[in-house]
Design a protein around this nucleic acid. Structure first.
Length: 570
RNA sequence: CGGGGCGUAGCGCAGUCUGGUAGCGCAUCUGCUUUGGGAGCAGAGGGUCGUAGGUUCAAAUCCUAUCGCCCCGACCA
């Protein structure tokens, strides 16, 4: 493509609406433009990236034996009533009526439609297993769309649905998709992790999320260095210490700690590490009572784990401070388990402490040298906290690290939820109707593009992983308007590279070199070639990779073989 | 939905407190010069100040309503 014929502008200034890097760079480089909240136009440069991502997904889905189809974005309400989700889904589901007052939804997902296809078309177990997929627009009326295309209302998703006659086939289909997803994200050149997701929510035995690793990711994930265990931070189990607890050495002592409200202040005042203190959090109980949760001072409460305790209210709610004072006779900041008049749950790590420090349940005082079993009854331990880097892996191998990730894919075994609701059955070997098992596998295609930028950028702009780049090569002629030699050489090079199969961005604008270099870097094109009078005299071109700091001299005649050897894919 | 904030030229902003008829930078257009890291000079175009009422001799500015957007939270995946 010739940049002189590309009418759209990029921007030097960052639009005020963009908060995250990928959003800023996508706007600045002219990949997308916002139409309304959560609705974006993909401009030509951006669409090229989107198409590259789609092509990789399509190839790998096909390779895995999935069959592509295309379902409507608008779906009749009846199907959603049949599955029960018409009532369950809430305002995230965009509902609309046609001129006959018939009700429809703009599909946020397509389980209903695909299950309808399956019950009409699939009659025999001999037609199974089968996996249908599409790459289609979805709409979810998010309460707060943000981060540009990362959390938009309208987005493109690759969604696949598999149908199986038995459990073994479902597990095998799931495994195939896991493999396909691993190939897809690897081919895209992204650093990613497959992460255990909540198996309880949907049911079935398996569910994994695929996360692109990026510091700006919304989800924290914990993964082991000893095997491939990885889980959402919220779901990662903190295992109980196996070593025996140290014996008590210190005597129980009350110390004055005026105005100390936080663990940090307490640790500083007493010159002890935070992990020698415990904090006591009071939450609403399931019976309208109060429940105390005790964790180590340097740990964080995990709300999901806490609210899963049978006597804790769900969703988790911190107790009202006035009520704590009234019922427990102590203020926040000075609470502790010793003599506390309510039910207490203690995290394994807190339970492992000896001679620890906690609130004295009276104003401006704490206790030191506290010991379980000696100064208060020995409680049983629970898992209440978020894991931290350095914890042993629940898999039993290695220790955990914490990273942030962006969820770009999700695979799970659905079981019979939709096939049962919609009556999707086939005849088995005995000629008996049997409800099909389903798996469901999504990739947020538009989100992948944003995630790729979050993971790969610098202060100058985007650094596309080569498989996703809108162009392979950017060709920058120096002084094109004045030098006939440069014009002839760069035109010839443009034709030559294009013929050799490269996507070439030819910056033939009448602009100063600095502008062209800056734009090439903002666009993130992996390979850059500069044609100038200097090089022409010596028969060379200047080459530079987007990630490189230095130019390389390159014999003009070798350019095609050179670029092919530098391409990190295909 | 709760809390906070913002709507002035394509983008980024000033002007609003203290009413007097709209400005700066970038971008765009024209001309000349310039051309190896976001050029210089000279000129030009572009805004019913989100919208609708109200107060006033006079409203971007004060009042009321309304719409849109952004951030935090809750919610959702």
């Amino acid at each position: 493509m010739r940049l002189s014929a590309y009418p759209l502008q990029n921007m030097k200034e960052v639009p005020a609406e963009a908060e995250v890097v990928s959003h800023q760079l996508m706007l600045r480089a002219g990949l997308i433009r916002r139409l309304a909240a959560g609705l974006y136009t993909w401009l030509p440069m951006g669409l090229r990236v989107l198409r590259k991502a789609e092509a990789i997904i399509r190839e790998e889905m096909n390779r895995a034996g999935a069959l592509e189809l295309l379902m409507p974005t608008i779906q009749p309400a009846e199907l959603w009533q049949e599955s029960g989700r018409w009532d369950q889904f809430g305002p995230e589901l965009l509902r609309l009526s046609d001129r006959h007052e018939r009700q429809f939804v703009y599909g946020p997902t397509h389980e209903e439609v695909i299950t309808d296809i399956a019950r009409r078309e699939l009659k025999s177990y001999r037609q199974l297993p089968v996996n249908f997929y599409q790459i289609q627009l979805k709409f979810r009326d998010e309460i707060r769309p943000r981060f540009g295309v990362m959390r938009a209302r309208e987005f493109i998703m690759k969604d696949a649905y598999s149908f199986h006659a038995d459990e073994g086939s479902l597990v095998e289909g799931y495994r195939l998709m896991h493999e396909a997803y691993t190939r897809i994200f690897s081919r895209m050149g992204l650093k990613f992790r497959a992460v255990l997701a909540d198996p309880g929510a949907i049911g079935g035995t398996g569910s994994q999320e695929f996360h692109v690793l990026a510091d700006s990711g919304e989800d924290a994930i914990a993964f082991s260095d000893g095997d491939d265990y990885a889980a959402n931070l919220e779901k990662a189990e903190a295992i109980a210490p196996t070593s025996p607890r140290s014996a008590p050495k210190a005597a129980l002592t009350q110390v004055a700690t005026p105005h100390v409200k936080t663990i940090a202040e307490l640790a500083k005042l007493l010159s002890v590490p935070a992990d020698q203190c415990i904090k006591t959090l009071i939450v609403d109980g399931a019976q309208g009572d109060l429940v105390a949760l005790v964790i180590r001072g340097d740990h964080e409460l995990n709300a999901i784990k806490a609210q899963n305790l049978p006597d804790v209210a769900s969703p988790l709610k911190m107790a009202d401070p006035a009520r704590i004072a009234a019922e427990l006779g102590a203020e926040i900041g000075f609470l502790g388990p010793v003599g506390l008049n309510c039910r207490i749950h203690v995290d394994h790590a807190a339970l492992h402490l000896a001679d620890f420090i906690c609130g004295a349940n009276r104003r401006d005082a704490h206790l030191t040298g506290v010991n379980w079993g000696r100064d208060l009854p020995e409680p049983s331990g629970s898992d209440l906290r978020n894991v931290v880097a350095g914890d042993p892996s629940p898999s039993g191998k290695g220790i955990l690290s914490i990273a942030r990730g962006i969820e770009v894919g999700h695979i799970f075994q659905l079981g019979r939820k939709y096939s049962e609701a919609l009556g999707a059955t086939v005849l088995d070997e005995q000629g008996k109707a049997t409800t099909m098992l389903m798996g469901c596998y999504g990739i947020g295609v538009t989100r992948v593009v944003a995630a790729a930028i979050e993971q790969n950028h610098d202060e100058k702009g985007i650094i596309w992983p080569e498989p996703l780049a809108p162009f392979d090569v950017v060709l920058i002629p120096m002084n094109l308007q004045k030098s006939d030699r440069v014009r002839a050489a760069s035109e010839a090079l443009y034709a030559q590279l294009t013929a050799a199969g490269f996507d070439v961005l030819f910056d033939d604008r009448d602009a100063r070199p600095g502008v062209k270099f800056a734009d090439a870097e903002l666009f993130g094109i992996p390979h850059r070639l500069v044609v100038g009078e200097r090089g022409l005299d010596s028969g060379t071109l200047e080459y530079r990779h987007r990630r490189a700091a230095e130019n390389e001299e390159l014999p003009h005649a070798d350019v095609v073989t050179f670029l092919k050897s530098r391409q990190s894919h295909q």
